[in-house]
Each structure stands twice: as C-alpha cells, then as structure tokens.
C-alpha cells in the first residue's frame, strides 16, 4: 500500500516503498508456504509407524507409576480408549482375552483418553480388565502418538520399536496376528 514515489525518482527505477511492499508480501508468503510445507510432511493424521516408539510415563488409577522404557525386552500393546467411547466396548473383551493368553510374553497398557477416574474404573471393572491402565494427563501421550480418535492400538516390539497401529476396534484374529509379529522380533 505504499507505492507513492519521491518526485525525484525516475520512472524506470523501483521505488523504495514499492520494494518494501513486494518484500513484505514475499516475506509473509514464504513464511506461510514454509508452515504448509511442514504441515504436509507432518500431517496430524500421520501416526508414527516405525522407528522408536515415543516414550511416556503415566500413573495408573491405583497410583502405580508406569514407564514405557521399563518394558524393554518385552513387546508392548498400547491401547487408547475411553469409557465414553462406544466402539471401545466392542474390542475390550478381545483385548482382555489376549492379555490373559499372552500375559507372560507381552505387556498390555490401557491409556484412558479424556476420561475421569470414576467412569474409567467402572468401565474397566465392568470388563474385568486386569492389565494396567491409567489416565493420559493433558492428552500428552495421545498427541505424541498422533492418535485421531479412540480406540486406537499401537504395537511396540521388544526393542522398543513401533510395528504399526490399528485404528478402530480390533478383531481377535487381527490382534493375534499382530502379537505373533511382535513375538517374532527377538532382541
């Protein structure tokens, strides 16, 4: 908005105000494009699929501290759920059954998303869940894993590497297959 010229300028030169103007448009444009470029490379829907699983700590509703790093040497199945989530109910018995079956070889962790203690406990007791579960304070773990909604399940091998994820309620056969894949990795 600033292309008035000092009268002494010859018509063929670029005025300093014109330069300032073009420069600021370019500056804003380049910043925007940089943000978009970053956004395209790292969209929120892009969950970590391979490489080291993001580490986290949480406290179960019973007050026990849990750290992902403590389970090195054992595969871990991390399940994000919530008591207000209807489709979580479909997979909860399946998860618990798998946990009872693979208890000695595989660790299961339940991470409650935006859930309150009373509701979460009631829900887990309803399904008689025996693996550890706790709240995700401030949704930090949820954000670190780029989860898009509950339920979602992540599979981490004995070396702490991610082996993919499952969106939505998981079936018994799919869960079994995933666990077999995890068990195939020997540290």
């Amino acid at each position: 908005m600033n292309e008035a010229l000092p009268p002494e300028n010859t018509p063929e030169s670029r005025s300093s105000q014109g330069k300032l103007m073009v420069g600021s448009i370019a500056f804003v444009g380049i910043l925007l494009v940089a943000v978009f470029y970053w956004g395209v490379l790292n969209p929120p829907t892009k969950r970590p699929e391979s490489g080291m699983a993001p580490l986290f700590e949480l406290q179960t509703y019973d007050g026990d501290p849990i750290r992902l790093i403590d389970y090195r040497g054992k595969p871990v199945v991390v399940n994000f759920w919530a008591s207000w989530c209807l489709s979580c109910r479909d997979e909860q018995p399946i998860l618990e059954a798998a946990w009872r079956k693979y208890k000695d070889q595989v660790m299961f962790l339940g991470i409650a998303y935006l859930d309150q203690e009373a509701n979460a406990r009631a829900y887990m007791e309803e399904f008689d869940v025996t693996y550890p579960y706790g709240p995700d304070m401030g949704s930090r773990i949820y954000t670190a894993y780029h989860v898009q909604g509950v339920p979602e399940t992540f599979f981490i091998d004995a070396e702490g590497k991610l082996h993919g994820f499952h969106v939505g309620p998981i079936s018994a056969s799919a869960l079994d297959e995933r666990i077999q894949q995890l068990l195939a990795v020997v540290p």
């Binding site: 919530a82 008591s83 207000w84 989530c85 935006l114 859930d115 309150q116 509701n119 949704s139 909604g149």
Partner: peptide
C-alpha cells in the same frame, strides 16, 4: 469440547462433555 471443532461445553452433545 476437547474432541469437537469449536463446540462450547454447554451445548456439546458428546459423552465426554456430559462427563
């Protein structure tokens, strides 16, 4: 509402909001 797009808690119909 933590899981919706721009819905205030008092008008939100989600279970989470109810809780």
């Amino acid at each position: 509402c933590p899981i919706c797009q721009g819905i205030r808690l008092d008008v939100c119909e989600q279970q989470v909001c109810e809780q």
